[in-house]
Write a protein that binds this DNA or RNA. Structure first.
Length: 119
DNA sequence: CCATTGACCGGCT
DNA sequence: TAGCCGGCCAATG
């Protein structure tokens, strides 16, 4: 599998993350069929043309933290967009237990991010 | 060809 | 919870 294919599949996966849900770089890599490709996910997003609309803000570190410097412009933007999605961001971090995207489950439940507690 | 650098990760203190 | 550490892997100089 060449780089272009990996990049495409990574972007396709990111594009499927529904509003109100988030995924880690590693998770996106797995779902995209690129094992241990967390860094490739970050690379793919960075290289993604500004033209294409990708919900890149729904991709976080494994611990739920925003991957940009706290004082950076990107950090602020990502935080804003997450909040718009209805995701609670505190201390530059999201509760992954609560918001992690579960593709199979979401499809099973029909679609929108559940607003009930699913501990 | 080697060294460094990340929008990273998981295990272990 | 918070670091530290070794691993990871493509891009860059």
């Amino acid at each position: 599998m060449d780089r272009e294919t990996r990049t495409r599949r990574i972007c396709e996966t990111v594009a499927q993350i529904p509003p109100g849900r988030v995924a880690s770089y590693g998770q996106v890599a797995e779902l995209a069929g690129v094992p241990r490709g967390a860094r490739q996910v970050s690379r793919a997003l960075r290289a993604a043309p500004a033209g294409v609309e990708l919900p890149w803000h729904r991709v976080l570190r494994a611990d739920g933290s925003i991957a940009f410097g706290r004082d950076s412009r990107a950090f602020a933007l990502q935080r804003e967009r997450l909040i718009i999605d209805g995701v609670v961001v505190s201390g530059g971090r999201v509760d992954m237990q609560r918001y992690r995207w579960r593709p199979d489950l979401d499809e099973l439940l029909w679609k929108p991010a559940p607003f009930w507690d699913e501990s």
